[in-house]
């Protein structure tokens, strides 16, 4: 898609490891959990195998923010603050979101390292992550000792968080493949032309760093 351009670092190693650990554990949790929701998958849940897998990967899933904090504390802080802070361009971007949905990035307001859609995605993932983790822990450690209402409240919240996460993931995969963004999360580097098109304000801030100390530290040649 983009050829012969210089590359800029968008995702640190810690961010990429955290992303993929979360992604893999999420899908394992999803499919092991679906054995209790889709009757034709029920035989896979027999004897508690799916539950064992679900619990092992729940631990991996919940340790991702811990890993992220240890590997890249500033990255985690930036992720959280950026995800909940929206400027005027972000709001305009959201208004024009239908254009972006259909593959038109030109004419969209300039964006920072995260576009407004990614911010909403991250913000909802953070909220549902907390919900699904806490309700999951209650269901795990409270098993057999919850009242009817406590139990139903927990499973319903766990379910709702799951549906939101699945829908967000579908959207996330859609935009990844429409805009060819997979490589950025694999190597950490994005094409400078891509950055100019999709994250103009972020690219400008990196360029400003460059003029301050004479070189562009986050870049390499493609």
């Amino acid at each position: 898609m983009y050829k012969g351009e210089r590359m800029v670092l968008r995702f640190s190693r810690g961010q990429r490891v955290a992303h993929w650990a979360l992604a893999v554990s999420f899908f394992v949790l999803l499919f092991s959990g679906l054995t209790l929701m889709i009757p034709s998958l029920a035989p896979l849940a027999k004897g508690g195998v799916a539950r064992m897998i679900h619990r092992v990967f729940a631990v991996v899933f919940m340790l991702v923010p811990v890993y992220y904090a240890l590997a890249d504390r500033k990255g985690l802080q930036a992720l959280i603050t950026e995800s909940f802070r929206y400027d005027r361009d972000d709001l305009l971007w959201l208004l024009r979101m239908p254009r972006y949905f259909f593959g038109r990035v030109k004419g969209m307001p300039p964006q920072g390292r995260l576009n407004a859609g990614e911010k909403i995605h991250h913000a909802l993932i953070i909220l549902t992550f907390i919900t699904i983790s806490l309700t999951g822990l209650v269901l795990w450690f409270g098993k057999g000792n919850l009242s009817q209402n406590e139990f139903l409240g927990m499973v319903m919240l766990h379910d709702i968080a799951m549906y939101i996460m699945v829908i967000l993931t579908i959207g996330h995969l859609y935009f990844t493949f429409v805009y060819g963004a997979l490589q950025g999360m694999v190597t950490g580097y994005v094409n400078e032309k891509y950055a100019a098109l999709e994250h103009a304000k972020w690219l400008a801030s990196i360029k400003a760093e460059k003029t301050a100390d004479g070189k562009l530290p986050q870049s390499k040649s493609a």
């Binding site: 898609m1 949905f101 259909f102 593959g103 859609y174 805009y179």
Partner: peptide
């Protein structure tokens, strides 16, 4: 929407 969106994006590039 995938086919339309990715075609639009390739055209813009």
């Amino acid at each position: 929407s995938y086919a339309i969106a990715s075609r639009n994006h390739r055209r813009e590039l």
